[in-house]
């Protein structure tokens, strides 16, 4: 708010001048993008390990829906017969994944950025409205800050899942040296099941995340690269008439840019 109050009144146009607002600090952008290939390498090498003893399936009771994974998946992704290489990559890159994640969580904690992510008490209701809005049952999206309530819940759940993933991974990696850590997951085999389940969960998140980013459009993707999101300047919120926080479209931005050529 401070930035806006200091500005002379005449600069705040009625329609709102087009500006760029920092939404993703530099550290978050770097950590986000470093995490991407690391997570990818961990899942890829992890699946090569899993192949050696691929006992899990999705289903209820004795009814099996599908096995993890069909042979075609292994063949297509060259996951078979690479257990040793899978282990070598997993236990090398795992450290980078853990360090990157630890820096990220520490950064969130120290800077207070976690406030943008961790859901508050209204989040559950609002998240429901976000989903209803997404599937076009509701016209109006609920109010939001940097992230909408559904994003906040899923980003928080993903962080918790990543933590469980890492801790269960260590329980499998060094069950004796870290004993009684495996007991947290019901033992060594329990830790394996949890580790695998969290991986599938992260893969599912990844798919939805990418689809949602595509749906949100270029401006949203760009904000994770540049840090900034284009928007219309809003008058100070305490005196504001109805306003829109919707990012403006590309064409509008271009028009404004031309207008702004002369200082």
């Amino acid at each position: 708010m401070g930035t806006e109050r200091e500005l002379p009144q005449q600069e705040t146009l009625d329609d709102g001048e087009v500006i760029a607002r920092l939404v993703h600090p530099r550290a978050i952008r770097w950590l986000h993008w470093i995490n991407f290939p690391l997570l990818f390498i961990m899942i890829w090498s992890g699946l090569r390990i899993y192949w050696a003893e691929d006992v899990y399936a999705a289903g209820i009771g004795s009814w099996q829906w599908f096995a993890f994974f069909p042979d075609a998946v292994y063949e297509r992704l060259d996951l078979g017969r690479h257990l040793a290489r899978g282990l070598a990559f997993h236990f090398s890159f795992g450290w980078l994944f853990v360090i990157n994640g630890a820096i990220y969580v520490t950064y969130l904690a120290i800077t207070g950025e976690w406030r943008h992510i961790v859901p508050d008490r209204h989040a559950a209701r609002e998240a429901k409205d976000v989903v209803l809005h997404d599937v076009r049952i509701k016209k109006q999206a609920p109010p939001q800050g940097k992230y909408n309530a559904a994003q906040r819940i899923s980003y928080t759940v993903v962080l918790v899942m990543a933590l469980v993933l890492v801790v269960s991974g260590f329980a499998i990696y060094k069950p004796t040296q870290l004993y009684p850590l495996p007991l947290l997951f019901g033992g060594y085999q329990g830790a394996r099941v949890i580790h695998f389940t969290m991986t599938i969960g992260l893969m599912a998140f990844f798919v939805v995340h990418v689809l949602q980013v595509i749906r949100s459009g270029w401006g949203n993707f760009r904000s994770m690269v540049t840090g900034y999101q284009i928007e219309r300047r809003r008058p100070p919120s305490d005196t504001s008439p109805p306003i829109s926080v919707t990012p403006v479209s590309e064409s509008e931005t271009h028009a404004t840019e031309i207008e702004e050529v002369s200082p």
Partner: peptide, 28 residues
């Protein structure tokens, strides 16, 4: 109307620095 909830959610973002579109292009 701007609701109380909207203001509450929006406030932390309003504190974030802003730059002109020109500057944004350069940084982009």
């Amino acid at each position: 109307m701007t609701t109380e909830r909207e203001r509450e959610l929006r406030a932390p973002l309003d504190d974030a620095p802003t730059i002109t579109v020109e500057e944004f292009r350069r940084r982009s």
